[in-house]
Simulated scan of single mutants.
Amino acid sequence: MIDIHCHLLPAVDDGPGTVEQTIEMARRAVEEGVTAIVVTPHAFHPQFETEDLNVQEAAATLQNVLHQEGIELDIYSGQEIRVFGDLVQALGTRHLFRSRDSCVWRSCTGVRRRRSAFSCWVTLRPCRVPK
Rank of each mutant, 00 (worst) to 15 (best):
M1G: 05
I2W: 11
H5L: 02
C6E: 04
H7Q: 09
L8R: 04
L9V: 08
P10T: 01
G17L: 08
T22W: 03
M25F: 04
A26C: 03
R28I: 06
R28N: 13
A29S: 10
A29N: 01
E31V: 07
G33D: 05
V34M: 02
T35E: 12
T35W: 00
A36L: 03
V39M: 03
H42P: 07
H42Y: 05
P46A: 06
Q47R: 15
Q47N: 12
F48A: 13
T50K: 08
V55P: 08
E57I: 10
Q63P: 01
V65Q: 11
Q68H: 08
E69N: 08
S77C: 12
Q79G: 01
Q79R: 14
Q79S: 08
Q89D: 15
G92F: 12
R94F: 03
L96M: 10
F97P: 10
R98D: 08
S99K: 11
R100S: 13
R100C: 01
D101W: 11
C103A: 13
W105G: 12
T109C: 11
G110Y: 04
R112M: 10
S116N: 14
F118L: 15
V122A: 13
P126H: 12
C127R: 09
R128W: 04
V129T: 14
V129S: 12
P130N: 07
